[in-house]
């Protein structure tokens, strides 16, 4: 409203100014102020950026499907509008990141989950037969302030819990994180132009006496998304997603770790068709993978997952079924 008024007002003066010759000098000033006013209006109505941790979400969606080896079956049943239960069975081999070489261990587990979804209050719980428990809560304290709680409990010293406070401003977002092991994190992301947003983060790990800062930039138009992230831990991640059409998008990413001095780049496609979604990826380590989600019926999905790594002679194939939702 205000923008249209202030925009409408400046164009009126120039014609009278332009007709008398003696009053030429003020003209550029008027134009300048007009353009300034235009810019100001523009810059005050910037869109809200994406959250800092989701800055590369499009690339992640396309390039990092949940590849698995073996068989999985997921079943979700809604008891009523807000409450639903999920059952999931997985049989196959899982890689344990032990020492230098990952070891494949045959595993089978059952996972039971309960979800409570309300627009202002969400609760998710998952229990696995091997004793792992994962609980998440998302509570809208006000319209702009969201509290997220995440807890992961398991045998051994890997249990963790975090509290996140997300504040969503008009053209910025900020988040404060607090976790066990005296972990504190803070990040802030701001829209700079309608397409470009810049962000920064800082974190402190009290028990390990480590701290770091990071910077991120994201440029998105309706055709492409480019994002880059640098952290003082030595991690550089760049990604680029190009939307060829509304069904097809091509993605590529580059990751460099200065600590371990390894760099990987990958390129993938993401086809979202009427009856299926197909994602394929090839990366610079020679890993070729594909993930197909086929919709057989309303609420019945068939999943095929394949991953081939010739260098390590590591072949992973999996199939699965998702029923419900």
């Amino acid at each position: 409203m205000g923008s249209s008024v202030s925009h409408a007002a400046p164009p009126a003066p120039p014609p009278p100014v332009a007709s008398p010759l003696g009053l030429i000098p003020p003209q550029p000033d008027a134009k300048e102020s007009e353009s300034k006013a235009e810019e100001k209006v523009d810059y005050l109505n910037l869109p809200c950026p994406v959250p800092y941790e989701e800055i590369q979400r499009e690339a992640l969606f396309s390039l990092k499907p949940e590849l698995f080896e073996g068989m999985r079956f997921d079943f979700t049943k809604g008891l009523n509008q807000r409450f639903s239960l999920s059952h999931s069975v997985f049989m196959g081999s899982m890689e344990l990141p032990q020492s230098a070489e990952p070891v494949k261990v045959p595993t089978a587990h059952y996972e039971f989950g309960a979800n409570f979804i309300d627009p202002k209050f969400m609760l998710f719980g998952r229990v696995l037969t091997d004793g792992r428990l994962n609980a998440r809560a998302k509570i809208d304290l006000t319209d702009n302030l969201i509290l997220k709680i995440n807890a992961q409990i398991q045998n051994g010293p890997y249990s963790q819990g975090t509290f996140n406070f997300d504040y969503k401003g008009k053209d910025y977002r900020t988040q404060f994180q607090m976790g066990n092991g005296a972990f504190y994190g803070f990040n802030y992301i701001q829209s700079v132009t309608p397409n470009l947003s810049l962000g920064t983060e800082a974190f402190w790990l009290g028990h390990q006496r480590k701290s770091g800062v990071g910077f991120a930039a994201r440029y998105n138009t309706d055709k492409m998304v480019a994002a880059g992230q640098v952290a003082s831990t030595g991690l550089v991640a760049l990604s680029y997603v190009h939307k060829v059409s509304e069904k097809v998008s091509l993605a590529s990413d580059f990751m460099y770790n200065a600590m371990s001095r390894d760099a990987t780049a990958s390129f993938g496609y993401d086809y979202m068709l009427r009856q299926c979604r197909l994602r394929g990826k090839i990366d610079s380590n020679g890993v070729v993978s594909a993930f197909l989600e086929e919709r057989l019926n309303m609420g019945v999905n068939f999943i095929l997952s394949a991953e081939i790594e010739h260098a390590k002679k590591d072949y992973k194939f999996g199939f699965g079924m998702t029923v419900g939702e």
Partner: peptide
């Protein structure tokens, strides 16, 4: 076989 064949079939 992994990257292109499924794509061709699906398309």
């Amino acid at each position: 076989l992994v990257l292109c064949v499924p794509l061709i079939i699906v398309m």
